[in-house]
Simulated scan of single mutants.
Amino acid sequence: MLDKQLARHLESIRHQHELSLAEVAEASGVSRATLSRIERAETSPTASVLGRLCSTYGITMSRLMMKVESASPRHLLFADAKTWEDPETGYKRTVISPPTHDYAIEIAHGELPPGADVRYQKPPQQGLEQHLVLISGALNVSFDGADYSMSRLDCVALKLRGRSRFRNLGEVPASYLIINGQA
């Protein structure tokens, strides 16, 4: 169900920006055929592809996912939060902030399986403020050529401007919080 809602929403965003599939393909580096299959819910986008699309449209992945979910009150139980899973890497992302668009901060929970490697070519918004807090496991994060090896409760604070990479070099899932502030 979430994949179908996501597909419809991605198509809606493309139309709002008055872009053709070919124009989005050129801007994002995602093939026109893949974009078409995603918008028809024939395939689920990977984290990398979603990252490219979010960058093309100028929105964060959390904001994209919030729009897919139905409106909810200011209090969101974790059990009711929607989880999206990258079909390529097994990366899971759960938006744990209530889907309220009036706030500048959004919080998501990420879980990266052992051996998983997720790369983003560019941020969804230039200068987006992002804080990562590792809850458990081990995580290697790369931003703009700098590498950070994270252990339990370490925090990395960045303003995203270029490529990023998340790798779990450990033997257990890496569980972490992603806190985004508007650029």
Rank of each mutant, 00 (worst) to 15 (best):
M1T: 04
M1L: 05
H9A: 13
H15T: 03
H17L: 14
E18Y: 09
S20P: 12
L21I: 08
E23W: 00
A25D: 13
A25T: 06
G29W: 06
G29D: 02
V30D: 04
S31C: 09
T34A: 15
T34C: 12
L35S: 10
L35M: 06
I38Y: 12
R40Y: 00
E42N: 07
T43Y: 00
A47Y: 14
A47S: 15
L50M: 15
R52L: 14
C54G: 14
I59T: 15
S62G: 06
V68N: 04
E69T: 07
P73K: 03
P73E: 02
H75D: 06
A79I: 11
A81K: 01
A81F: 00
K82S: 10
W84L: 11
D86H: 06
P87A: 13
E88H: 14
E88T: 15
T89S: 14
G90K: 08
Y91R: 14
K92C: 09
R93S: 07
V95L: 08
V95G: 04
S97Q: 01
P98K: 03
T100L: 13
T100M: 08
H101E: 09
H101K: 08
D102Q: 12
Y103G: 11
Y103L: 10
I105G: 00
E106F: 01
I107N: 03
A108W: 03
G110R: 10
L112K: 09
D117C: 12
R119D: 13
R119W: 06
P123I: 15
Q125W: 01
L128V: 09
Q130H: 03
V133C: 08
A138N: 07
L139M: 11
L139A: 10
V141E: 05
S142A: 13
S142R: 13
G145M: 08
G145L: 07
A146I: 04
Y148I: 07
Y148D: 04
M150K: 04
S151V: 07
D154F: 01
V156D: 06
L158S: 13
L160N: 03
L160Q: 02
R161W: 04
R163C: 05
R167V: 14
L169E: 07
E171Y: 03
E171D: 12
V172S: 04
P173S: 06
S175G: 11
I178S: 12
I179K: 10
N180R: 07
A183N: 07
